[in-house]
Amino acid sequence: MLLNWKTGGLLLGLVFFGAVLLVKPIGVSTQFVILDGIIGDAIASDLVTRTEDGYTSTNAYLAKSDGKYAKAVSNPLNYSFVFVAAMILGGLLSSRLRGGIEKGEREIPALWRANFGDSKVKRYAAAFAGGFIVLYGARLAGGCTSGHMMSGMMQTSLSGYIFTLGAFAAAIPVSLMMFKKEV
């Protein structure tokens, strides 16, 4: 059972406000890079290295902004990384409280099933490909739905509006083309 939009919007607004009041605006997509860095550094330990006054990396993206990301890779127990880990637990908790999601729906969401059938492989491949484009785009944009759209527009930042315009300009036509059958 979903919250109605007024209650849900109020609660979501309070979470975004609470974050900026107590710490800083919410953002998620950077942590995909941090986890990549952690995995990469575990495989090739010279990916991230300590310098006299901080951290740097052989990867230009991790090294940018004075090694801000390289530092987070070396210290995963930081606010932003723990925040995203806690989000997963939040999802687990919420789903337990509302009685879980039935098996078929856990594998293939209803709207996808109505339009593309019962193939798990097809759904998982689409989710994987979607994830690739989403995170590539989010890192190119410098943020995602949380950081740019929600936190950005909340702060009246110009980049938040530019991002939101781009995101919906693509998402709506693609969705209209893909999901013609309703559930």
């Binding site: 989710a127 190119l140 410098g142 949380s146 991002f163």
Partner: peptide, 22 residues
């Protein structure tokens, strides 16, 4: 790149139904 990245994220969001946080 914010706009180009937004277009990409929007495309993947529509296909998968997920964004990074969700």
């Amino acid at each position: 790149g914010v706009f180009i990245g937004g277009l990409m994220l929007g495309t993947g969001w529509a296909v998968a139904g997920y964004c990074p946080g969700t």
